[in-house]
């Protein structure tokens, strides 16, 4: 594949909007990838980072991304996920530097992030789980976008059918419509969802292998297979997010119990 073509492809509307410092693009980024970044930061932090700090760091990461966007060279073939991770690492590194500096009672910010604490953490390199989370986040964003432009009842039908794997007949009873009507609702939503998914992946991918991830995950297929794949990824993603939340809850509870 020739270089100009890559350049063309990575110059997505999202990058353009970020470059123009479009606040809502920034918010979309936060909405989509905030949870993933937060989970990664929490993992690397190994329980040393409180909830507040995590939230701040997530914010810092996305702000840093917003700032570095001008200097970012998309032709180098770096994955979007890798880029995001690099920035998060950098932000976390800054935080730890600051802590070290404070502990030593000096203003020195000399500890380079890669050869100190970063080196100790094996998990700080991109791994399968991280990549899964990033793809999951894109799908999440696509579903959210779909929910926005579909009729509420239609979307609910699809959500119950595919994301909760409820039988069509049961959904019909709940909604007071026939099963064929449920199928029709789902059909409408699926069409929109396929589109949204293409857009999301296009916007948040820099390389070809990132762009082909949905296909590899079975998301470019006939309706039944598409639904199956989507439902599966969705539920897996939910599990991941729930685990993050459980960890967070445990942290909050610890905070509370020390209050007393």
């Amino acid at each position: 594949m020739s270089a100009p073509l890559i350049m063309h492809q990575v110059d997505t509307s999202f990058l353009r909007r970020l470059r123009a410092h479009d606040q809502s693009a920034w918010f979309e980024l936060w909405e989509a990838f905030g949870p993933v970044i937060r989970a990664m930061l929490a993992r690397w932090g190994g329980g040393r980072l409180g909830e507040e700090t995590l939230r701040d760091l997530t914010q810092d990461t996305l702000a840093a991304l917003d700032h570095s966007i001008d200097r970012f060279d998309p032709t180098r073939g770096v994955r979007f996920s890798t880029w995001l991770l690099a920035i998060a690492k950098h932000v976390l590194g800054d935080e730890f530097d600051r802590r070290f500096a404070q502990k030593r009672g000096s203003g020195r910010r000399g500890v380079s992030l890669d050869d100190t604490w970063m080196g100790q953490s094996r998990e700080a390199t991109p791994d399968v789980e991280y990549e899964r989370r990033i793809l999951g986040a894109k799908i999440h964003a696509a579903v959210r976008a779909t929910q926005k432009c579909c009729e509420f009842v239609h979307f609910e039908a699809y959500r119950m059918r595919v994301l909760e794997s409820k039988p069509g007949r049961d959904i019909g009873v709940l909604l007071g419509v026939s099963e064929p009507t449920v199928t029709r609702h789902c059909q409408r939503v699926r069409t929109v969802l396929r589109d949204s998914l293409r857009t999301a992946v296009e916007e948040w991918s820099f390389t070809d292998d990132e762009r082909s991830e949905p296909r590899d995950a079975g998301l470019v297929a006939d309706d039944a297979a598409f639904d199956d794949a989507l439902g599966e990824i969705w539920r897996a993603q939910e599990e991941l997010l729930l685990r993050d939340l459980a960890m967070r809850d445990a942290m909050v509870r610890d905070d509370r119990s020390t209050d007393h």
């Binding site: 009842v153 009873v173 709940l174 909604l175 007071g176 419509v177």
Partner: peptide, 13 residues
């Protein structure tokens, strides 16, 4: 009570 029975669902469906 089904969602379909809710007052907000009875109009316009």
């Amino acid at each position: 009570v089904r969602p379909a029975d809710l007052p907000s669902m009875r109009s316009g469906v």
